[in-house]
Design a protein around this nucleic acid. Structure first.
Lengths: 243, 243
DNA sequence: TTTACTTTGTGTCAAATTGTCACAATGATA
DNA sequence: TATCATTGTGACAATTTGACACAAAGTAAA
């Protein structure tokens, strides 16, 4: 039995005393790259994909648990995080998957592990600047990768539905505040933000009107122009700090 | 020890095996009466008020649990129900309140009852036609009453925050669909719906524009005029059935 | 049976917002 | 120096929203 296997078994064993039972948090981590909106997914040992998630410590705020799990997954603390829905179908569990995992590890399974029970999952979506993330898989995953948010692989449980719902919530929230800037580096140009919006809404937006609308929010401050680029130099902007 | 006390103790004792631990559902039940938006509240034995709520059976969908609890409280099944947020602060429990309850009942308390633990509460708001409801208090409440949604009494825990958040969500949802008709009888007039909207938004809305907007949704069908009223007779409407 | 008054339904026009397009400024490249 | 793609922004049309007006329909009082 190797180190990783021992760690997994230890977590499963001690988890019962550390975490709240029957409650989990799942996160839809949105990133932007290559002109497309992406989602970070983990690959389970059986080849299926799933959302990053985790459990809530008994003495930990729900929001803190969600944040901790995302930070563990991408190594970045400066992220936008928002709860959007809680999923609680009655048969929502990883019963079979855990059973399979134990079989693969060559370990015998005690009956009805806490981790095999039904889980009510509170779902969050987060917006991160993908360029500074360092994704790494968790205990149960063998790899992790960014996927086009509209071309998802086969996902476990109701995770595809969670992604779809997250995207709907994100788009709705975007109508009242230009949150999408969180997907870009701290300094960005309007054409860049424009491209992000277009890939989120999946449709062409007029440049002129787009900039006017962004300025109306009065939350971005104009900095110097970007240097070293072809053609007319675009202004850089950053989100105003709420001091 | 009287019947009610026995029932309470029985529920608390058996609850551990029936319900999921650490998870509850709370409902903000909106009604409309006397030109104002109202919320149904329960009065705890200590005189404080709280939201109707309950627990989730181990084999029950989360949404079903919320619906069941609302039905139990108002005796009406035909209601609009929508999940809007999950509250999970780490110290969120009725520890003291249950302790007090036991003291009042003259019963000794076993240490750390499941019901005294921290609860993560999934909150729903519902819209009901108040005229056909028959509110009745639950085990832990001595009475229940409708309150003006903007003049709430002292509420337990974070329940005031839950009501405020519910109202914000309701108003946001109302921008994309005229849900408010659920607060009225099946047949209603445009002036009535107009008054409901005004009390939700707390501001004057132009009658002419309001009606045009409602018609644009194309979800209400015009019926006969209302008879037996003074002045010009308004048309009755009802929401189209989705067959 | 008029006349006055309230309520309802809807039309008209102005104001504000949004959509489309145009064009000049800017800087690399031929 | 000319050409070309990109960026910033102005002008005007189209659409949506707000404000107001007025007639229709009915009760109640003179």
């Amino acid at each position: 039995m190797n180190k990783k296997t021992e760690d997994i078994l230890e977590l499963i064993k001690s988890g019962e005393h550390i975490f709240l039972p029957n409650v989990s948090v799942d996160s839809v981590i949105f990133g932007y790259d290559n002109q497309e909106l992406q989602v970070l997914l983990l690959e389970a040992s059986n080849g299926n994909w799933m959302l990053p998630g985790g459990y809530v410590r008994k003495e930990e705020d729900l929001d803190a648990a969600a944040l901790r799990n995302v930070v563990e997954r991408i190594g970045v603390k400066d992220i936008f995080l928002k709860q959007f829905h809680t999923f609680g179908q009655r048969k929502r569990s990883f019963h079979k998957e855990i059973e399979q995992l134990f079989e693969d590890l060559g370990a015998s399974i005690a009956q009805d592990l806490w981790i095999q029970k039904r889980f009510i999952s509170v779902a969050y979506y987060t917006l991160v600047n993908k360029t500074i993330t360092q994704p790494n898989p968790n205990f149960f995953a063998k790899s992790c990768r960014w996927h086009n948010a509209r071309q998802l692989p086969k996902l476990l449980l109701d995770h595809e539905n969670i992604v779809t719902t997250a995207l709907d919530s994100f788009r709705a929230d975007l109508a009242s505040y230009p949150l999408a800037y969180h997907l870009l580096p701290q300094k960005f140009t309007m054409p860049e933000l424009h491209a992000v919006f277009q890939s989120i809404y999946q449709k062409r937006l007029d440049r002129s009107r787009f900039q006017k609308k962004m300025f109306e929010y009065d939350v971005f401050e104009r900095l110097e122009s970007r240097v070293g680029v072809a053609h007319r130099r675009p202004y850089l902007y950053r989100h105003k700090q709420t001091i």
